[in-house]
Amino acid sequence: MERARAERIAGVLKAIADPTRLQLLHLIQSAPDGEACVGDLTERLGLRQPTVSHHLKTMTAAGLLARERRGTWVWYSVDPDGMEAVREILRAPARTAS
Rank of each mutant, 00 (worst) to 15 (best):
L27D: 10
L27R: 12
L27W: 06
I28A: 01
I28D: 00
I28G: 01
Q29G: 06
S30V: 11
S30C: 10
A31V: 13
D33H: 15
D33K: 15
D33R: 15
D33T: 15
G34D: 08
G34I: 07
E35F: 00
E35N: 07
E35Y: 01
E35M: 09
E35T: 05
A36K: 05
A36E: 08
A36R: 04
A36C: 11
C37D: 14
C37E: 12
V38D: 08
V38Y: 05
V38F: 04
V38A: 14
G39M: 11
G39S: 13
D40C: 05
D40G: 11
L41D: 04
L41V: 08
T42V: 15
T42Y: 07
T42P: 06
R44D: 08
R44Q: 14
R44L: 13
R44K: 15
L45S: 04
G46P: 04
G46E: 06
L47F: 07
R48H: 03
R48W: 00
R48K: 06
R48N: 03
R48L: 03
R48M: 02
R48V: 04
Q49T: 08
Q49L: 05
Q49I: 05
Q49K: 11
Q49Y: 06
P50F: 06
P50N: 09
P50I: 04
P50E: 09
T51I: 12
T51Y: 13
V52C: 05
S53D: 06
S53Q: 10
H54L: 11
H54W: 10
H54A: 09
H55K: 13
L56M: 03
L56K: 00
K57E: 15
K57Q: 15
K57T: 12
K57P: 06
K57F: 10
T58S: 10
T58I: 14
T58A: 14
T58K: 14
M59T: 05
M59F: 03
T60D: 01
A61K: 13
A61H: 08
A62T: 08
G63E: 01
L64Q: 03
L65F: 11
A66F: 07
R67V: 04
E68F: 03
E68D: 12
R69S: 14
R69L: 13
R69I: 12
R69Y: 06
R69Q: 14
R70S: 12
G71D: 05
T72N: 14
W73T: 13
W73A: 15
V74R: 09
V74K: 10
V74L: 12
W75M: 12
Y76W: 10
Y76S: 08
Y76F: 14
S77Q: 07
S77V: 03
S77Y: 02
S77D: 07
V78W: 01
V78S: 06
V78H: 02
V78K: 04
D79A: 05
D79Q: 03
D81W: 00
D81H: 01
G82V: 00
M83L: 15
